[in-house]
């Protein structure tokens, strides 16, 4: 078990959103305020870690033939629990995320990690994987949220800071580009982030290659 590598995978080299391109639906739909991004990110983080742990623990019990059905039951169970808890204790979050919390059931990150990682590894490794991938997802969501909220609504942290949760106004009303709040803005922001990610990855790969050539 290599915790450092697992975290590096989750945050950078195997980032669920920017590299594996999983969970796009929620990434596009809810990333309009920082509050939404953090709420969604933490929900996925919790669900992913729990389902990873349970699936890793049951990996020797669940037969191959029914594994997907078993994973879905486990995932749906955790999602429903989190959904109920959010509705009961953070109703504002449930109002602004709406149907996207129940839809975490079909978020490919969860099933993807269950199939690709948790079902083949020990419980502690699966737990670390859930946390690392969940943090990777949350960070990307938060970055997209900050960009879209700032340029689209002109505020920072709506739902968390400011008068009546209106956020801190940075760009005067009437000037922000409304389009970034619309779905189109989600695609645009995500596309730019993926391009930036690839560019930095290629650049560091180039640099490493040149260094190894120079060393020879």
């Amino acid at each position: 078990m290599n915790i450092g590598k697992q975290f590096k995978d989750g945050l950078v080299s195997q980032n669920p959103v920017l590299v594996q391109l999983l969970g796009m639906c929620s990434t596009m739909a809810i990333t309009t305020t920082l509050f939404n991004g953090i709420g969604m990110g933490i929900s996925v983080l919790v669900i992913l870690t729990c389902s990873n742990v349970v699936i890793a623990a049951l990996r020797k019990v669940i037969p191959q033939k029914i594994r997907i059905a078993a994973y879905v039951v486990v995932i749906a169970g955790f999602v429903t629990m989190v959904d109920l808890l959010i509705q009961a204790f953070v109703p504002e979050l449930s109002k602004s995320l709406g149907v996207f919390i129940p839809l975490i059931v079909v978020n490919c990150i969860i099933l993807g990690r269950a199939e690709a990682f948790a079902s083949k590894n020990t419980v502690p490794a699966a737990a670390i994987d859930g946390i690392a991938q969940g943090i990777g997802y949350t960070i990307v969501l938060v970055v997209i949220c900050i960009i879209r909220e700032l340029l689209g609504s002109g505020t920072f942290g709506a739902g968390i800071f400011g008068v009546n949760g209106g956020g801190i106004r940075i760009i005067a009303e009437g000037y922000p580009a409304l389009f970034l709040i619309l779905p189109f803005g989600g695609f645009l922001t995500l596309g730019c982030l993926i391009a930036f990610m690839q560019w930095t990855a290629n650049r560091s790969a180039d640099k490493a290659r040149k260094e190894s050539e120079a060393a020879k």
Binding site: V61, P63, I66, A69, A70, V73, V74, G77
Partner: peptide
Amino acid sequence: ILFLISAVV
């Protein structure tokens, strides 16, 4: 097995 998992959930 599937029944048991479902029942626990």
